[in-house]
Design a protein around this nucleic acid. Structure first.
Lengths: 158, 158
DNA sequence: AGATTTGGTCAATTTCGTTGACTAACTGGC
DNA sequence: GCCAGTTAGTCAACGAAATTGACCAAATCT
């Protein structure tokens, strides 16, 4: 049997699978966070936390990462700051830049996120094997990464 | 160098990759549709068209497929009907059900969608090989499908 | 110094889905 | 055959979240 790919039954469209996969991970992540007492975490927070972990981030950098307007990114940061996860700072060199840095609470949440994340990927590994997960990741990166290995913005809005 | 998977650098989180992948496909699809003159197509339309292709669909069935409320699904169908892509019909057996069927215009759009879609998957195949694409699809289905092979609803809201 | 670009905010609007209340039509018991 | 409950769907009001547009202040260019 080698005729799997021809015409008739190509299986579910990739877009649908990606949408479901993304949603499944995010839903599970936030459900797990809620059971641990984090009940004011919005889906985009995770990406911001990750970005802030790897060095301070500005609103403009978040725009590149998330793919929505700077106004929206600004509001997002405001909300995260109000919830105590991040703090806006000042830069000596450039008074316009107001870097977003993690608070202690933010770091705690980040640790929880990473922890849950490990569980979730482990569940994927249980289904398709650890090498299956890495193959998946590698394939996705191979298709999505542009020259220089940079990934496009996230923004799964619909 | 074999230490890629241990701790430090696990690569981008799957959620991010899925979000980007979904968005990339949808953006490209709609960009391609626009260049062909379809400029009033919203992201969810594709899923509805596909569902309607495989037999008539009711609003309630769309709820299961898309994962949002029947009110929202109803409005979506209204919008698609107003744009001339689908038509509500009546059933002899059950006067409550108002099946959603494709119009000629809807079928034309669907053909365009399928056409573009083939191109997009071909681009994926160019990057990771045709078998890579099918492997990807199979892996995703393996993880996401519940008992009976049914996939959860889509709803990539955020 | 003046012009332009860059980082960021404030305010108004739009988009889209949700909650809530409700109607009409089909089923199940008796 | 009729009443209770369920199913399919709509109408209307609300809410969350992002967008567009106008704007400001600090840096950079010339």
């Amino acid at each position: 049997m080698d005729g799997v790919t021809d015409g008739a039954a190509p299986g579910p469209p990739l877009a649908r699978l990606f949408a479901i996969a993304y949603r499944s991970l995010i839903d599970d992540l936030h459900a797990a966070l809620r059971t641990r007492g984090w009940d004011d975490v919005r889906p985009a927070y995770g990406f911001v936390l990750l970005a802030a972990r790897d060095g301070s981030t500005t609103v403009t950098e978040l725009v590149d990462l998330l793919g929505f307007t700077k106004q929206a990114a600004s509001k997002l940061v405001d909300a995260m700051a109000a919830a105590g996860y991040v703090r806006r700072e000042a830069t000596a060199a450039d008074a316009r830049r107001r870097p977003v840095v993690l608070t202690a609470r933010g770091r705690t949440l980040l640790a929880a996120v990473e922890d849950v994340y490990r569980d979730l990927e482990a569940r994927w590994a249980a289904a398709i094997g650890p090498d299956g997960v890495e193959r998946l990741r590698a394939d996705l990166v191979a298709v999505l990464a542009g020259p220089g290995g940079t990934l496009p913005p996230v923004r799964p809005t619909w």
